[in-house]
Design a protein around this nucleic acid. Sequence first.
DNA 1: CGCTAACCTAGAACAAGTTTCAGTATCGAA
DNA 2: TTCGATACTGAAACTTGTTCTAGGTTAGCG
Lengths: 203, 203
Amino acid sequence: MTAEVKPSSPPLTERQEARRRRILHASAQLASRGGFDAVQMREVAEAAGVALGTLYRYFPSKVHLLVATMQDQLQHMHTTLRKRPPAGESAAERVAETLMRAFRALQREPQLADAMVRALTFADRSVSPEVDTVSRQTTAIILDAMDLADPPGPEQLSAVRVIEHTWHSALITWLSGRASIAQVKIDIETVCRLIDLTDPEPR
Amino acid sequence: MTAEVKPSSPPLTERQEARRRRILHASAQLASRGGFDAVQMREVAEAAGVALGTLYRYFPSKVHLLVATMQDQLQHMHTTLRKRPPAGESAAERVAETLMRAFRALQREPQLADAMVRALTFADRSVSPEVDTVSRQTTAIILDAMDLADPPGPEQLSAVRVIEHTWHSALITWLSGRASIAQVKIDIETVCRLIDLTDPEPR
DNA sequence: CGCTAACCTAGAACAAGTTTCAGTATCGAA
DNA sequence: TTCGATACTGAAACTTGTTCTAGGTTAGCG
């Protein structure tokens, strides 16, 4: 379950890696303040000490940049979550606990969350591969939390997909102020029941 | 459950109503071709025979316009769906059937669906009231399909919310080419099981 | 009918994402 | 070390959403 983010493609030189890192850092920085709108490509370029054209060479659009930022943050999150695995009895409880922990982390940086999630759902086909990577990372986190004895069956994978759907969409309703934190919690707990429905093994 | 879309606010004159209608028609028209990107405010204005400033008086942003377009389409959809109510045995089956029918309708106009759904999820707080209306319309459609004997309890409402989350998010993954039609079907059917979980009454 | 406020039009202007280009710097191989 | 290819820079240009302005039109009311 080592979900490293594609170090594929032409390997970057050290300075290029550093540039890429500076860009992602600047992006997260700006997003942490004003959210999606505050991540302006000219400002990112300036903050990262890079020309605008170079920024576009690394990330072909603002959405690409923000989705990459999300990959970055998700990786941190995954690492953090692993340090203290959830303690629930059932897989459903553990997943709900894990997602709520992630949710609390996002609450600490609502503007950053806004930027990343909006980019993710706004992404068109040209960003599919990157969005897919995010999806795989999320799946990995959920499967990690389930801590299954056996590899998941197709029914369980469906349940996981539905949980992901609910997770993303609930985040959006929260970010746009249409749902309260409590409501998100309820939705997550509700959808997690699907797991026990598809997995009779009580462990 | 008559979910008419707010005819509130200052009532419009006949010509104004006609303008509004022309604008929404132009919007849907353009969206049916190139999707979200093809709905360009200048073009909408021209196609509707209206000045740009007027367009912005009726719909304060492109997202507002597209969300209103969605309200419009949803109302049609709701009317159409009512004509032939779903025939499933359980509420879960009926909801799944209804959503799949809606899904097939969207498949006939994928570009239009793209424009509307992208606008919906990209909407920020300033569009919350309108997005909320869409959400209520969707809820009404689902509750209609459930065809409950008694008013829904809080658990059932949670399940409905989760179904809506899944519906929207699954649509997005389909529209961005990351999930197949078959996969969307499975996800919808999976999440609909939640209904039977929260409603022991088999009718 | 005549008035006034609200509405509409054409068009310029502005903002931010994206593209382009000419010139300079860096990298990897010979 | 030198050369050719590739990458980077700075700046201008282009696109499309959004705002603003000046002047003409409409609706409703006395």
